[in-house]
Simulated scan of single mutants.
Amino acid sequence: MKVAIISVSKKGRDLALELKEKLDNDSTIIKTDVFHKDVKHNFPILFEEYDSIIAIMASGILIRTIAPLIESKVTDPAILNIDDNANFVISTLSGHLGGANRLTHKVAQLLDATPVITTSTDVNRKLGIDVLAKDLYLSIDDTKEILYFNKGILEGKNISFVMNSEKNFDYLIKYLNENTLEMDVSINYSSEVKYDEIHVQMDSHRLILKEKDVVVGIGCRRGKECEKIFEGLKISINELNIHESRINFLSSAEIKKDEKGILELSKKLDVPVYFVELDKLRLFESNDIQKSEFVKSKFGIYGVSEPSALITAGFDSELIYKKTSYDGVTIAVAVSKAK
């Protein structure tokens, strides 16, 4: 997640800098930039370039500024509102698909503030279908149906998940067991459902959830054992709250194609591994990746885990976990755009 923090007062700016320092230590936050004043000029730019905007200002200023910019719950960024004294962190826009509710809880904990969430499913301790899709990196074929499904969940209707039995959906089963609370959920299997799809049914309505590709990029010292690499991977995906069965691909640089630890991990997870050519890594450009002069001096490329993950995930993919080191192992995670 790429986060912009914007403030209008000196006290708000001090809070913004404090929050940036805390968020920069979170591997799931890809970058955090701070803006001050010039709200009308900055907001249209922030809407286009950031996944979330944290506005430290009066709610009236925020609402009047974003009103002309709002388009859709599918595309609008997450927006949080914080007062200068950091008493409250309010999820203001795109609570589910944009991730504002989850970020609100994270920021409130960092600032020892009170999180304010108003979405019906959350306050009634129900799981929204759009929350499930967001958390598990699934696209939704018809977002207009979200309202019907979430209303039905609130009313206690049965919701059925139908999958292909040949595919490992442990990640979904685990997620539902941990998050459905008192919801009426059933699991069914059908060979007619495509391998990478989950069909969700309620009454005569149906949604199709489709997996985006989750790619784990790996860099490591020569001879690093499989278990050591796996330890770093497990820490990373635990911070993302995803199960190992949700991983679609592993990726690294072609200089690692004989690395026994990575090859063994691919077999252990039953996930294919792609080794990206050095020429592709040299030519790859992204403002989101961290550049290492040490790696550049040794291999002629600025990094392994982040660019490998992004290249393997495909055009317009995005980092969801920035390069993080674990005793000689670096892990980054990217997700593809909706198929």
Rank of each mutant, 00 (worst) to 15 (best):
H96M: 05
L62M: 12
N164C: 05
G219M: 02
S305V: 03
F294S: 08
K151Y: 11
I320K: 07
I63S: 08
K20L: 04
D122P: 09
A4I: 02
A55W: 10
K20D: 05
A67C: 05
V335C: 05
K174E: 15
S305R: 04
P68R: 07
V333M: 08
S292D: 07
Y302N: 15
T104A: 06
Q290H: 14
L265D: 11
I311N: 01
H199T: 07
S165R: 11
L69Y: 03
G261Q: 08
F249N: 10
E306T: 07
F43G: 10
D76S: 00
K194R: 15
N168M: 09
S266N: 11
H36D: 06
A4L: 02
K106Q: 07
A108P: 03
D14Q: 13
D51G: 12
I140T: 03
K73D: 03
E306H: 02
D38A: 15
S190T: 01
E225L: 14
E18Q: 15
D141Q: 01
D142V: 02
V131W: 04
S297V: 06
G300S: 01
N248P: 12
I79A: 02
L19A: 10
K257Y: 15
L93H: 01
K260S: 15
I45P: 07
R206S: 13
D24A: 10
N150D: 07
I235H: 15
K40G: 09
I79D: 00
N150A: 04
G314Y: 11
F161H: 00
